[in-house]
Design a protein around this nucleic acid. Sequence first.
DNA 1: TTGAAAGCGATACCAC
DNA 2: GTGGTATCGCTTTCAA
Lengths: 346, 346
Amino acid sequence: MNFNPITIRDIAKALGISVSTVSKALRDSYEISDKTKKLVNDYAEQNNYRPNPIAQSLKKGHSKSIGIVVSTIENQFFSQVINGIESVAYQAGFNVIITQTHESYEMELKNVEQLTHHALDGLLISLSTETKDVSHLKHLHQQGLPIVFFDRITNEIETHKVIADNFKGGYDATRQLLNAGYKKIAHITSPPNISITSERFAGYEHALKEVGMDIPSAYIKHCAHGGRDMSEIENALNELLSLKDKPDAIFTTSDRITTTTLYLLTKMGIKIPDDIALVGYTNTTLADVLNPPLTSVYQPAFEMGRKAAEMLLSLILSKHPVTEFETITLPTQLFVRRSTLPKKAL
Amino acid sequence: MNFNPITIRDIAKALGISVSTVSKALRDSYEISDKTKKLVNDYAEQNNYRPNPIAQSLKKGHSKSIGIVVSTIENQFFSQVINGIESVAYQAGFNVIITQTHESYEMELKNVEQLTHHALDGLLISLSTETKDVSHLKHLHQQGLPIVFFDRITNEIETHKVIADNFKGGYDATRQLLNAGYKKIAHITSPPNISITSERFAGYEHALKEVGMDIPSAYIKHCAHGGRDMSEIENALNELLSLKDKPDAIFTTSDRITTTTLYLLTKMGIKIPDDIALVGYTNTTLADVLNPPLTSVYQPAFEMGRKAAEMLLSLILSKHPVTEFETITLPTQLFVRRSTLPKKAL
DNA sequence: TTGAAAGCGATACCAC
DNA sequence: GTGGTATCGCTTTCAA
């Protein structure tokens, strides 16, 4: 199948003028007479002429498009981030190419590989849970590809980064449970190698230490793929529930882990918060109508996307090499709902 | 900022051979000796050579990328469709560029405009709720751009299409309410101009007619932007609830309308299903843990994406103009949950 | 087996 | 004001 749009050369031929004149006329150059401009523009319009962006990209050395790598767009957190990115990119006339890793390191490699090298002006990335080695990105970064990290970042690469205040998110969630009278707080989270895990864990730990409590290591459960597979969470839950000293509350990180935990507990017939309280990270708009309404840590996802995109565009558009980088930390919000009802109220 | 990856010319110069030899060696042409191939490939590997896809696209006349236009990826239905599309496109080595209309006709125009013309090998689109005129797409289609419609289609353009069985979805949902003993069934839906609205309405109507019931027009509410703005649904609900003859059940279409209706009814203190039963279209994985668990029409979104992408690729890859088109209809599934509990059980 | 050169579409420098 | 031409990086005849 082909698709043969008209080119600048067709216009030149049809009008009996040169291609350079046509090109300049279309770009409204001061060198071209109004008469010629009108002639060219009218013809272009009538024949539905559109410049071929590929040729423009090749010539200009940039593609006006940026790549995004996230684990999965089905996660509302990421779709909201993408909306934020898009809102900025669109304004600036940039295209956005989205790829998903589904939490696989291999997919991350492939996607980055596929996206990069001149077809992209910059990259926005949140690492997969499997990612431990970032040399694929280091390489590109050294070659000069502008990269901005968001959410799951690495400190092996010096560039702009945008994160939520993960420490505070973890702290607030845990503190809320403690204030509500829960004392045995388990934590189901992503693998320790990704940044958000350790930051949130630090907040959790700090809240517990603050009230002089220990963290029994049996209460910490890592899901290798951030809850991608339900079995990960099922196992964690089964282990927690078969402990002699069962937890009376759970703090979950990530949308997927949170909602799946809610689902599984419900299915097991465990009452929330009566049997076990639950607080989790989630950006779903449905937190209020869940059963029970879910106490949750909300991240400013849209804003994170906006900021990340703005920083990336500033790198792309900068005339000089950028050597000063910053890491923006956005506040999280704790929404208290029934899933962490104070113990005495039960 | 720039980013200067090595080119085929650099390799040629470094090795003292011609660019055409390098090009052929890299593509493993039979014309080139093994020795030269090895030389070139080793050098390329060591210097991290990557072909510039823009130059390749310009030369070959295609970009190996397809565009997707949906209303919003925050809707799980669409993110699942996109996952399906991606799974097929990725296998075939195609990039996917996603854009969102946010239910605006103007955005649809802009996105399509931005996406098309040679930077794209094909387009997958679900129309915005505002779209009445599809001449922007007709144009492109006439010029030869392969297009496949999914979900919200138009019959003004002859090409492949993939939809869910919207009639049956509407019928099943309504029938379920009738079977459960509800008799006054309201319908909150998208504007009548989009295909899914009328198809689902027809199913609803058929189920009611079947049992000899009338459809009071006051029970049918259209949300101009498919529930994008909460106020649309709030108004619809207020009007329904102030009717002298209040409905005892509501059938909603679209994820957004469904979940927002649930949210608003809850906020108004209306008990579901006691005061009003609810059945809605939604692809959220959370239907089971909503309060109450929601009877819902589930669409095979991933499958829809797969099929649409396959059809698009077949158009793109076809050597001959395609003149026979088909419309695939995928089955929907009704999941019965507590929100439509039989009246007698209440 | 290798290389020269044309060409994909648009841009921009330099002549005229 | 207008036109010729080299160029972006790669592919592909066609000659050698």
